[in-house]
């Protein structure tokens, strides 16, 4: 497509009044309804007192967004959204909730005392953004032709135009992976692995690292005072 056609499409066709805000098309209605669902579940996700439910409501919101993507003819992205977000991110979040021993059921202190300020800021930012957006794009219409977001188109575009960022992204993922492993390995003060061996006479503590060295049985459990190791 050349620039002129792009611009033409961008500014909307010169056809009069076939598109009007007050007579929504079908896609718009569906979009609106799904949008309400998405918004509602997002609001519940950030306000509910049950932490695990919040994760599940997040699932609903993200799923709804995948539907929105479909409506906007971006199929590949919709499925990627489902795959990555619903498949791995939310799972990770749930794992995180589990590993940090999030309370199951209602927890009355799920919101910090910051929430009124947060509400104010959120409302203000919402108001600002919405006003700006509506004001800026009052007369802009999307031309929804099918196929613009198919896998082949997206793939071709990625591997023709976006190869370098794609590779850089893979490096980023590698870095994130390595970083996550390093972070979760824990501190250096680790109890050494128990050795097999004879019962030794009393050795002063600290000569071989810990008391564990003098005992015949393995004692990976460090005293409760040290940081609990969690291999994982």
């Amino acid at each position: 497509m050349n620039v002129a056609a792009t611009l033409l499409a961008a500014t909307g066709s010169l056809e009069p009044a076939a598109r009007s805000f007050l007579s929504p098309t079908g896609q718009e209605i569906v979009f609106l309804l799904v949008g309400i669902a998405v918004l509602g579940s997002a609001v519940v996700a950030v306000t509910t007192k049950q932490l695990v439910h919040a994760a599940l409501w997040l699932v609903v919101a993200l799923g709804g967004l995948a539907v929105e993507f479909l409506l906007l003819t971006a199929e590949f992205i919709a499925w990627v959204q489902v795959l990555i977000y619903l498949g791995s991110v939310v799972v990770l979040v749930l794992f995180g909730l589990m590993l940090t021993k999030a309370p199951i059921g209602r927890s009355p202190d799920a919101d910090s005392k910051n929430r009124w300020v947060a509400l104010a800021v959120a409302l203000a930012s919402a108001g600002t953004l919405v006003t700006l957006v509506v004001d800026a794009f009052r007369t802009s219409w999307i031309d929804l032709g099918a196929g613009g977001g198919s896998a082949s188109v997206t793939g071709a575009s990625l591997f023709r135009n976006w190869v370098l960022p794609f590779e850089a992204l893979s490096v980023l993922l590698l870095a994130a992976l390595v970083g996550a492993i390093v972070l979760s390995r824990g501190s250096k003060r680790r109890v050494p692995a128990p050795r097999a061996g004879r019962l030794r006479a009393g050795r002063p503590v600290g000569s071989n690292g810990t008391v564990a060295a003098t005992a015949p049985r393995p004692a990976p459990e460090a005293p409760a005072a040290t940081t609990p190791e969690q291999e994982g």
Partner: peptide, 8 residues
């Protein structure tokens, strides 16, 4: 919060 309020 303070930061975002300022940005807004």
């Amino acid at each position: 919060s303070a930061l975002l309020a300022g940005v807004v």
